[in-house]
Design a protein around this nucleic acid. Structure first.
Length: 93
DNA sequence: AGACTGATTGTTTAG
DNA sequence: CTAAACAATCAGTCT
């Protein structure tokens, strides 16, 4: 319990940080970037409900080795965030 | 020192 | 434009 992950409702969460160092993306975001055109290409007509869900299933359908390229991207993006964060703590003060 | 949460990230599609 | 499924995240906060 203490985690009703019903997919956080209400997107566009407000920012609590002064300059809001927009965190980093997640492996899924990179994976989705590649699948969005792939999945949708193989499933012409599939709506958000279908592709969106199918995407997640396939996402894990891959193995850590397959999501490696996405993970690498994720960590790369993390570094990106690192920069903002750096400026964040520097600017905030 | 360790544990927790919340906030956020991006995609898809539809009215 | 926004919302919700889908997944990861991980940074800052708190006692």
């Amino acid at each position: 319990m203490s985690a009703p992950r019903e997919t956080r409702k209400k997107t566009t969460r407000r920012k609590k940080d002064p300059n809001a160092p927009k965190r980093a993306l997640s492996a899924y975001m990179f994976f989705a970037n590649e699948n969005r055109d792939i999945v949708r290409a193989e499933n012409p007509g599939v709506t958000f409900g279908q592709v969106g869900r199918l995407l997640g299933e396939r996402w894990k359908a891959l193995t850590d080795d397959d999501k490696v390229p996405y993970e690498s991207k994720a960590e790369a993006d993390k570094k990106r965030y690192e920069s903002e964060k750096e400026l964040y703590n520097a600017t905030k003060a």
